[in-house]
Structures are given as structure tokens and as C-alpha cells.
Nucleic acid binder design. Structure first.
Lengths: 157, 157
DNA sequence: TTTAATTATCTTAACCTTAAGATATTGGCT
DNA sequence: AGCCAATATCTTAAGGTTAAGATAATTAAA
């Protein structure tokens, strides 16, 4: 794209190999940052008695109150099997309940219970705090930049 | 850190809540970018007959030839149990072999075999290509920026 | 030197995720 | 109406990860 094997070149010229190396480097750095971050975040969630997917399901419900199972999977990027598994566990603990949809009998809503909301009122602020402090390496400006770049990267996939 | 509840403030002032929201946003965007990226990369690896951790182990050996099991785990951020499991599979397929360390009998090296090297000579360039095209949403400059920011973020954790 | 602490690898059990497919429902088309 | 593709949820089996702890070797300390 940026350069062929022509002779002359500006100082910003890069070969395909260099571009690929940069892509690979970004891939590695992104993976490491994500894993380190997630590792800590998962420990945080577990310390509140919730597996990470359970936490994410409940987080969705905390903000949307009631939502079809299907859409939860789309939001947190897991398959329907995983949704069934996690919703089952949360329902057994009384943190949410299944509510059949009247208009479309294929659909089941998940709805957060009072107990679920109380739990999350407790732990959500702590969670945000914890994520925030993990991001301590970047200042406000840098976070904005990183967010933009990652959003753009994500769209390109 | 950046603002207390003082009255005056410059136009760049942000409240703690805003900072935390920015951190959370970055967390979400990072997670999504990673998942989308990894999803594709994993499919790529599987199409070459290697599970993702197997691929990563072999990638390390492709560049280092021989390395203690322990250090592989550190590099790709998985536990010793996972290393044993994956090294077993790769060894059974003849892509690497275990070599006991003579100086320290607790240590076992993994060493890539000729077959392993040949396989990777084939698939590594394709893999790099594939990663590179996934990064197509960002130009060269942006990749450099993103890499720097993520490295900084990672160090802060 | 014996003891204790650390380090490397392996084992096991529990847990979570996915892919594939079963079941049921809906909506569109003829 | 009857048929067919699409959609939503659940089931099952297989695969991969971790935490905890077992074993063995090394190092440091007493």
C-alpha cells in the first residue's frame, strides 16, 4: 500500500514487512494489556462471588432491568449456550428471574430482582473504582486517545 | 487527582466520576477489540490445525528454538498446568520435544523439531498477513500510537 | 550437614466456553 | 391454509483453563 520496491522514498516510507511487524507488535501488546487487565478484573469479580460472565450479565441487567436472553449474548459476546448456563446460575441464586415474553413465545426476558439490584448497588461502585485504578498508567488525555484508536480498530474487523 | 470540589477550574477539568467513566469506557472498548481480533486470529490458527495456545507456544519456539517450559508460560501468560497440557499435545504430534536440562534437573526445555519448523515456515507468514489485515482499520501512525498507549497501560497494571 | 524455603513440572478436579444440533415459534410466500 | 426459512432457547459433548496441591531438585541458612 504505502511503498513498492521503487528506488526513491520519503522519510515516512515503510516497507510491507515493517507494516506487518507493526501490526504484529500491536497485536501482542494489545493481548498482553487485555490479559493483565482482565486477570485483575476477574479476580475482582470473583471476590464478589461472581464469575466474570455472571458479572457481565448482571451488569447489563443493572442498566437495562429487563432484556431478552438473546440480546445479552450479543452485548457481552458469548454464545447462547453460555447464556443459558450463566442465567441458570444467577436465577438459582435469586439475582435475576426469567420472564416469558407474551408477544413472542420464543423469547425469554431476564429481569434483575431486588436482591440482584441490591448486590450490584454494593459492588458496582467498587468495580468501577478497581477498573479505574488499573487504568492508572494513562492520564485522561491518553485514555481518550486509546479509546478512539481501539474503537476504530474494532470497527475495521 | 485532577480536580477536587473547588469552585474554579480550567476547561480541561474533569470530575472523578467522569474519569472513572472514561476508564470504564476504555475497558469496554479494549475488551471488544480484543475479542473480535482474537476470534478471527483463533479461527486462523485452527485452520492450520493448532489451538491458540499451541500456536503461541510454537511461535515462541520458532523464535527461540529452545526454552524452559516455565518461561513459555511467562511469555504467553498461562499457568503451568496449561503449559503441560499443550506441550504434551505438541510433543505427541512431533512438533517439539522435551529436553531435560543438565545443569538443573528441575528444568525441562521445549525444543522445536524440524517438523515443527517446517510447519511454521509455512503458516507463520500467512498468520502475520492475516493479523495485518485485521489491523486494516488503523494506519501506520495510529498503530504506533496505539502500541505506545497500550504498552504504557500494561506497565501500569 | 540438616533443615527449611524456593523453584520447576506435573496431576487432578472443577469450571467455563464453544460448536452442533434439537425443539419450538414466528413470519413470509404461494 | 400449508410450507419453509429464520429466530430464540436449550442440550450435550468436547476442549481448554485454572487453582490447589503433589513431587522432586536446588539453594540458603542455621
Amino acid at each position: 500500500m504505502s511503498s513498492k520496491n521503487k528506488t526513491a522514498g520519503t522519510e515516512t516510507d515503510t516497507t510491507l514487512e515493517q507494516e506487518q511487524a507493526a501490526s504484529l507488535k500491536l497485536f501482542v501488546v494489545l493481548s498482553k494489556a487485555y490479559k493483565s487487565l482482565m486477570d485483575q478484573a476477574v479476580k475482582d469479580m470473583k471476590s464478589h462471588g461472581l464469575a466474570s460472565a455472571e458479572f457481565m450479565v448482571l451488569e447489563v441487567l443493572y442498566h437495562r432491568n429487563r432484556i431478552p436472553l438473546q440480546q445479552i449474548g450479543e452485548k457481552i459476546l458469548v454464545t447462547s449456550g453460555s447464556i443459558t448456563y450463566n442465567i441458570d446460575k444467577l436465577e438459582k441464586r435469586g439475582l435475576l428471574k426469567r420472564v416469558p415474553c407474551e408477544d413472542d413465545r420464543r423469547v425469554t426476558y431476564a429481569e434483575i430482582t431486588e436482591a440482584g439490584r441490591e448486590l450490584f448497588d454494593d459492588i458496582f461502585p467498587q468495580h468501577v473504582d478497581s477498573i479505574h485504578s488499573l487504568m492508572g498508567g494513562l492520564d485522561s488525555e491518553e485514555k481518550t486517545q486509546a479509546t478512539l484508536l481501539l474503537k476504530k480498530l474494532g470497527k475495521g474487523i
